[in-house]
Each structure stands twice: as C-alpha cells, then as structure tokens.
Simulated assay, not measured.
Amino acid sequence: MPRPRRRTFEEKKRVTVEGAGPAGLTLDERTGALYAADLGNDRLIELKRGSTIPRFLPAGDGPISVSLSKNGRTAYTADQTSGTLSVIDLREGTVTKSVATGAGALSVATDERSGDVVVVNRTAVTVTVVDPREGVVEETVATEANPNHVEITDGTAYVTDKSGATQTEDTLARIRLAR
C-alpha cells in the first residue's frame, strides 16, 4: 500500500518592509489584503494580493494588534503604548477615532454580529467593549491577571489570561457580548 504523500511548505515570495516592526496580522478574506500592525512606527501596513509594494496607514501610539470590520472598510488597532483603540478608515487612510480603553492595550477583535470591538488591556487587567461608530466605551470588565488575547465567535469573547508570578496556571474567560 503506498504511503500518503507528505505536504511540504515553502516560501513563495517574501516582501520586506525596511525598518518595520510588524506585530499582529489580519487578512481580509474577501480581497486577500493583509494588514500588519507596525508597533515601532505607529502605522498599519497594508499589502494587497499580488503586490510587493506596501501602503502605510496611520495608527495610534504603539499598534500591536489589528482587526477588521465585517465589511473590510475599517481597521481597528489595539495601541499598546497609548492604551487606546484606533479606528482607521482604509479607503481614506486616516484615523477617524481614538478611544481610551486601558493601559497596555494588547489584543483586539471585532464582533461581526454587532460591529462592536473588544480590546484586551493587559496592564489595566481589563477587557473593554467599544462601539467604534460612536467612539465610546460600552463596558469594561475586569479579568484575571495578565489578559493576553481575545477571539470572538457567536457573540462570546474568549480571553486568555496568562499565568503570572502569583498565578500557577493560565485561564480562559468567556464574556457574553450584548446584541
């Protein structure tokens, strides 16, 4: 009986952005555009499918994570240095709103049902729910020490809390989001 063929992965093409410090990534699955939060340069890097020339968009102070709106026209960055959420109009290439969420904003995700954005604030030890259209905080929830990452599915935000000096194990928080 023949053995199944193993798949090998190989790099097809590399795009180097001199001086960039990309952190978080997200992909617009409809268009194939890739977005990277450029932590050290306070910007978002956009790379369209098939292109090797990036477009640079402004972001807040220390963007480390990025998420897209459901329609792909808006990007959101968790800005670690300033503790904010930046709302970026991708067509115009401008920051339209900056919302204070808490110290050490580290991870961001979009609730596709409501359009709300959830930001994990590591230093503040909170999770903040933001209405990006209005530019207001809807709710802030305390978590265990060291909230690290957020993902959203079916109206629930899942937040990982990394163990720290006073904790012995990592935890996972479930936060039900309003409709």
Rank of each mutant, 00 (worst) to 15 (best):
T140W: 10
N146P: 02
V15N: 13
P2F: 00
K70S: 13
G102D: 12
A20V: 14
V87C: 08
K70M: 05
D170I: 00
N148C: 00
T143K: 08
T77V: 02
T31I: 12
V15L: 07
V108R: 04
V141R: 15
T160M: 02
S67D: 11
D131N: 15
D154R: 12
A109I: 08
D38R: 07
V141A: 08
V119I: 14
R5T: 15
V130C: 05
P147W: 01
G32V: 05
D28G: 11
D170E: 02
K48H: 05
A78T: 07
A37Y: 13
I152M: 01
K162I: 13
S86I: 01
L85K: 06
T31C: 08
R7I: 14
G21C: 08
R49H: 07
A145G: 07
A75N: 06
S114V: 02
R55D: 06
R174C: 01
K48P: 11
A124Q: 13
F56I: 09
T168V: 08
D131M: 00
I175D: 01
L47A: 06
R14G: 02
T74V: 14
Y76P: 08
P2S: 04
V136C: 01
A165N: 10
E134H: 02
G135P: 02
G21H: 14
V66C: 05
G50T: 08
Y158N: 00
R91K: 15
